[in-house]
């Protein structure tokens, strides 16, 4: 039972991060390799808001999440907007550069020391018994949040006006623009939503297990999950996360813990060889002369 819980928590972590990759890729075909760094930034923002609103942990978290949303929109408006229409690769490399910049800034502002947002909020991470196993409060919150986020995104994309516009922009930007959809607004929204989900992930992970710059690597490890499921499919991201998390935990249990670090990337290579567009992704168009 504990095995299943461990897999579920890890899968929730990966899924919550992976949907950030998917949102941006689906709408603008840009792979945001700074997602891990943005996620880390949100967790550090929580440290600051926690010291501002030391009486109200929930307000502190809400403030941090709101700030992250703003960061995402600003990143699009001031940086990625200029890369719209450029070569996709240039845009991806811009996100890499953004990541490097953020890593530097985070250390400059908050120092490289290991931090504990949970302590800053005055929270204790209780453990809860479930189905013959145990789960930490933050772990349970992670699973619930992931479920809510995915349900919310699903409803948003399917039924809301902006969600439909987002899907339209992703399918055919030219037609969408001609139909009167403001592409820049849609892209900015996608970036905002993506950093928002990233912020949720970053904050919950840091509440569960502390915060330092290795969080970036966690963001990177969630990327294979997004790709295995298909970079433009939310369902895919969910299933992909489950696969990667299961592979990783089973590797720790039954083979060699050291391999668990490499296993997501092995699965990824396997997937790239067999089905590069992922389990649920759309097959990219072939070249035409």
């Amino acid at each position: 039972m504990q095995l299943a819980i461990n897999i579920a928590v890890l899968a929730a972590i990966y899924a919550l991060i992976a949907c950030g990759y998917v949102l941006i890729y689906r709408v603008s075909r840009v792979l945001n390799l700074a997602h891990g760094e943005l996620m880390m930034l949100s967790a550090y923002l929580l440290l600051t808001t926690a010291s501002l609103f030391s009486k109200n942990p929930l307000i502190a978290i809400a403030a941090a999440i709101f700030l992250s949303l703003c960061v995402g929109v600003l990143v699009y408006l001031f940086l990625m907007r200029r890369m719209t229409g450029e070569m996709v690769l240039a845009a991806v490399l811009t996100t890499v550069a953004l990541g490097v910049l953020l890593r530097g800034l985070v250390v400059l502002v908050w120092s490289a020391q290991q931090q504990n947002p949970a302590q800053a909020l005055g929270w204790v991470n209780y453990s809860i018994p479930v189905f013959g196993g145990r789960i930490s409060a933050a772990g349970a919150a992670l699973i619930i949040t992931t479920a809510l986020v995915y349900a919310g995104l699903f409803l948003f994309l399917r039924f809301s006006r902006y969600g439909i516009r987002m899907r339209a922009a992703g399918q055919n930007p030219l037609l969408a623009a001609q139909r009167g959809i403001s592409l820049h607004a849609i892209y900015a929204l996608a970036w905002g939503l993506s950093t928002l989900t990233g912020a949720l992930a970053g904050i919950l992970i840091s509440l569960d297990s502390g915060l330092d710059s290795t969080m970036v690597l966690i963001g990177l490890k969630a990327f294979p999950a997004a790709l295995v499921g298909g970079l433009d499919s939310l369902v895919g991201a969910l299933i992909g996360s489950l696969i990667i998390a299961a592979a990783e935990v089973l590797m720790i249990y039954y083979v060699d813990a050291l391999l668990s670090d490499v296993v997501p990337f092995l699965v990824l290579i396997l997937m790239l060889v067999v089905r590069p567009w992922g389990l649920f992704g759309t097959r990219e168009e072939l070249d035409r002369v």
């Binding site: 940086l79 490399l93 811009t94 550069a97 953004l98 490097v100 910049l101 890593r103 530097g104 800034l105």
Partner: peptide
Amino acid sequence: YAAFGIVMI
């Protein structure tokens, strides 16, 4: 790090 990122951008 920060300068490297900025230069690249």
